[in-house]
Amino acid sequence: MEAKKTKENWFASFGRSVLAGLKTNGGIIIGLIIICIILGIMTDPFLTIRNFTNIMRQISINVILACGMTMVIILGGIDLSVGSIIAVSGCLCCGLITNMGVPSYAAIPISILAGTLVGIFNGAVISRTTIPPFIVTLAMMNIGRGFARIYTKATTILVDDELFTFIGSGTVLGGIPIHIVYMVIVIAVSALILNRTKLGRNIYAVGDNKQAAAYSGIHAKKVTMTVFVIMGFFAACAGIISSARTFSGQFNVGEGAEMDAISAVVLGGTSMSGGIGHLSGTIIGCVVIGVLNNGMNILGIDSSWQYVVKGIVVLLAVFIDYFKKIRE
């Protein structure tokens, strides 16, 4: 009886979360639907299941980063080093496998740990000092990228490994791309952390008012540290997946990834000053960016113009948000 009750709770609770998510993100969802309709009319291949799976695969890395970034930004921080963490863990993993003959099942956790170390460093400095997260992670972005170049000697390290290949392009349960599985796991973990744990509440509290959080007995240092470590871990995992997809460690992998993640978070309505935001918005933000990329590629729009369009969309979203707030 008791177990059954819990199960019902889980289900009802999940449903309520999804509904609440749809409600708070009404505007951007309507925007997304309009984009999809336009692309569906303009091109044949857009509204196909095959293309849908494609989009999911393409946005998976950004979703993983943006989930972590949502926590970081709600906390009132920012992490510019995630793109470089991707390069650090990805290149290290490929180097260990190809150049040093380390078996992939050992190389992968070692590389994830190495990437997470960057997050640990970020967290340690940011939680213990008043140096702005922007500066600390900007420095780590350059340091990480530099080490990736040094380690790969600015070349590409090719990998031929069964497990590695599976991680990068495998399918499970009869054809579901493994990227979708990663994505679902990361979203679930992040949603649980933000909405169902004390840590989640504390992230919002610290982001809203650090001093008040301290007066309410919240260990702001620990919360900050934890969030940056989670971010580092997510980015390190994303690094392995990125490298595995191309069977190679490239020193420039993940360049600009931090900006896509931040764009998705902002599109999703999370406030850059901290304290306000929802994971559901971030996920829809990722889908919007993914759909735009995919649609513009199908339409054959020049990649230079694609940047312009993506920038305009972010600006537009922020403006709409701004005017909504003013009206209130």
């Binding site: 509290a205 809203d208 008012n209 001093q211 008040a212 007066y215 304290g275 306000i276």
Partner: peptide, 16 residues
């Protein structure tokens, strides 16, 4: 300064 989470709602502030 020291008490409220001003951007958050009454529920969050009461139960933190």
């Amino acid at each position: 300064q020291e008490g409220l989470f001003l951007q958050s709602d009454v529920r969050f502030n009461t139960t933190i």
